[in-house]
Simulated assay, not measured.
Amino acid sequence: MTRWIKLWIFASLFFGLAAGPARAGDAPEALTNFEAAKVVIGQKNFTSSKCNLGGKPTKDTLCGMEGAAALGKNTLYVPDSGNARVLGFKGIPKKNGASAKLVLGQANFSKIKFGATSKLFDYPSAVVTAGSQLLMTDFGNSRVLIWNKLPTKTNTPAAVVVGQPDLTSNDSATTQSGLDHPELGLFVAGGKLFVSDRNNNRVMIWNSVPSTNGANADVVIGQPNFTSKSAGTTETSLNEPEGIWSDGTRLVVADEANNRVLIWNSIPTSNGAPADVVVGQADFTSSDNPEPPTDQSLNEPSGVAADGSNLYVEDWQNNRILVYSPFPTSNNPAASIVLGQADFTHGDENAGNASPSAQTLFGPYGLSVIGSQLIVNDFGNNRYLIFNL
């Protein structure tokens, strides 16, 4: 779906605002089809969904957020895109409607100010931690920000910027150092930084996390070089890539506009390297999204995550999460478990209900596996859901 439609959905939310058995196999033991989440962040309960609870932002609200959450030491960092901020919670919340202990991007919990500085953002859309560092994609400013020490205080400034020459620039570019609106795709593994450069139809790889502003990437995939940006549907091309996951060996990329997920069995070291496995399509040249959906189909997948043996894919337009067990090694596997829907052949918002529940999803757009928990960005319901694995 094009970006303007996503923002139209967000604007509408801002201003308007029976379980089946799992298949046999190696699926996560705690998960079954249509599993209920255990905890909600951003809402007081599982049936409310309004942006900022229908009012102004506070320390326990969210609005139109995108991207995965990340845990650093004892702080859970959560992007709150519509409020142009990142919230920091003390650990992973165990009760609904938890209050954050710190905010980044704003001077306090009630402010909404957009900008391009070391302290101001324009639609932060994903966060990831790497050792003592915090990284964040700043979609509206076409950049990635890096904090060299995990922030523990409100309004801590970022130290380094990727995609821009300095911390006040926000031009889009198709170069070895530039970016054009990176969104969900942000990951660090094996010391390497991976960024989905959405509008350039590519993934950029830095062999180490940059320590200086505007550092050049080392490898690009989805394109043959650093100055091309054409979309395509092959094993070497991408079309609006989003979520990324890696274990330092394998690389997984949600190729959103191609309705598929691509897997590289080893981290590419040369430009334009071909993918090894495709999920959601029968081959590398197809981009179908059948209606009704199936246990093999995808419709604009967004976030991806894994726990080593299982792959989790957010099927955004089908308002569900598919779980593949074991981790796919061949093309077009069938999912083992579905979350957000009662079965594999439905894809309605909130499973066709007028309001959400602990089991339903509306446009999931970012997820992460942290320990034994799956944390899901439920964009259309202005909340994060926490599932036990």
Rank of each mutant, 00 (worst) to 15 (best):
Leu7Thr: 12
Leu7Met: 06
Phe14His: 11
Gly16Gln: 09
Ala18Pro: 12
Ala18His: 11
Ala19Met: 01
Gly20Ser: 13
Pro21Trp: 10
Ala22Val: 14
Ala24Lys: 01
Gly25Trp: 04
Ala27Ile: 00
Thr32Asp: 14
Asn33His: 07
Phe34Met: 01
Glu35Ile: 02
Ala37Tyr: 14
Lys38Asn: 10
Val40Asp: 12
Gly42Leu: 04
Gly42Ser: 07
Gln43Met: 06
Lys44Met: 05
Asn52Glu: 10
Leu53Tyr: 13
Gly54Trp: 06
Asp60Asn: 15
Cys63Ile: 00
Gly67Pro: 01
Lys73Phe: 05
Lys73Arg: 13
Leu76Met: 04
Tyr77Ile: 01
Asp80Ile: 05
Ser81Thr: 13
Ser81Phe: 02
Ala84Thr: 03
Arg85His: 05
Phe89Ala: 05
Lys94Ala: 15
Lys95Asp: 12
Lys95Val: 15
Ala98Asp: 08
Ser99Glu: 15
Leu102Met: 15
Asn108Met: 04
Gly115Ser: 06
Thr117Ile: 00
Ser118Ile: 00
Pro124Cys: 06
Ala130Trp: 12
Ser132His: 09
Gln133Pro: 00
Met136Thr: 06
Thr137Met: 01
Asp138Ile: 01
Phe139Ser: 11
Leu145Ile: 04
Trp147Cys: 06
Lys149Trp: 03
Lys149Ser: 14
Lys149Arg: 13
Thr152Leu: 04
Ala158Ile: 04
Val161Lys: 01
Thr174Ser: 08
Gln176Phe: 02
Glu183Lys: 03
Gly185Leu: 05
Phe187Leu: 01
Val188Trp: 05
Val188Pro: 03
Gly191His: 04
Leu193Asp: 09
Ser196Tyr: 02
Asn199Phe: 12
Asn200Pro: 03
Arg202Asp: 08
Val203Leu: 13
Ser208Val: 09
Val209Cys: 10
Thr212Glu: 13
Ala215Met: 02
Lys229Asn: 15
Ser230Cys: 00
Ala231Pro: 03
Gly232Asn: 10
Thr234Leu: 07
Glu235Ser: 15
Thr236Ala: 12
Leu238Phe: 15
Pro241Ile: 02
Pro241Tyr: 03
Trp245Asp: 11
Asp255Ile: 02
Asp255Gln: 07
Ala257Asp: 14
Asn258Gln: 10
Ile263His: 08
Trp264Tyr: 14
Ala273Thr: 12
Pro274Glu: 08
Ala275Pro: 08
Gly280Arg: 05
Ala282Asn: 11
Phe284Lys: 11
Ser287Lys: 14
Asp288Phe: 08
Asn289Ser: 15
Pro292Lys: 04
Thr294Tyr: 04
Asp295Met: 02
Asn299Asp: 15
Ser302Thr: 10
Ser309Arg: 08
Tyr312His: 01
Val313Asp: 12
Gln317Glu: 13
Gln317Lys: 14
Arg320Ser: 14
Val323Glu: 13
Tyr324Glu: 08
Ser330Cys: 00
Asn331Lys: 01
Pro333His: 07
Gly340Met: 09
Gly340Lys: 05
Thr345Ile: 11
Gly347Cys: 06
Ala351Pro: 03
Ala351Asp: 15
Ala358Pro: 01
Thr360Pro: 07
Gly363Met: 06
Pro364Met: 10
Pro364Glu: 12
Gly366Trp: 11
Gly366Pro: 07
Asn377Gln: 09
Asp378Ser: 01
Gly380Val: 05
Leu385Asp: 14
Phe387Asn: 05
Asn388Cys: 03
Leu389Ile: 13
